[in-house]
Amino acid sequence: MKLLVCFKIVADLDQLTPKDYVVEEKINIDTSFVKTTINCFDESGLEFGLRLSDEAEGLNLHIEKSALTIGNSQTELYLKSLNALCYDHTIRIDSGDYDIRFKPDAVGKAIVDYAEKNQQDLIIMGRQSSEGNNFSTPQVVAEQLGTGFIPNVVDIHMMDEHRLKITTDNNGNIYEQTVKTPVVVSVGNAVISKLRVPTLRDRMKYGSKEIEQFPLRLEDKSLAGKVRSLEYVDKSRSGQVIEQKGSEAVHVLYEDYLKRRLDNI
């Protein structure tokens, strides 16, 4: 079985203060001074890839695992780490000067180009990322490849060479289904959220393993539309400090705030 996990490296936006949201000339917000991480849904996807591979070994099967990201040279650190975790192929597509942050069509097209050249049985993607947050890139990939698509995946297990057991969460309703490959899945709030860590020895051993570069070829239609402005979404909530202390404070909290809400339920 051939498996491709697509992932995105994102800035840890929790480290930005509201005053850091300065929109620059190119309608960009400078996040270069904060740490980067693997987008959380994609991190689950990458660990699923390794777990499926472990399961396949138990079934005497082999999974050829690839991990692909679209990003600048900063992403190579993560790809190196995936090499050390024994991903067979790590691929970087450099987006160069294209601004495809908010263009799921373009991102999807880039992934599809790769997947058409390198046929895959299973493509795992995260359902959304903090930048863009459009929920639609995995759908675009499935649609352009003409394969089945399963959203909100929370768990994946290997059954045999061509079948997977996939669990999805649809608004709190959990479904389990047996799925035949090829398929594209989009991972939601999965049962695993953290990627395992390679040992120092493996990092040294695979440190010089090649990261494959794949070209980005975009057509005008997937690049249509221009970002005009960005605005900070204020997520702060109002609060009030209760002056009283101890049990008196609890009484005020109940009488003045909670009771009214409880009555309305």
Binding site: Q15, F33, S193, K194
Partner: peptide, 30 residues
């Protein structure tokens, strides 16, 4: 210097960070 200032502002550990660590350790065994 902004790189250093931002890093510093996020250096301390509170109870939430310890809880995050717990979840991570249980999953990764790292």
């Amino acid at each position: 210097s902004k790189l250093i200032e931002t890093w510093f502002a996020n250096l301390n550990w509170d109870a939430a960070r310890i809880e995050e660590e717990r979840k991570e350790v249980l999953q990764t065994k790292n």
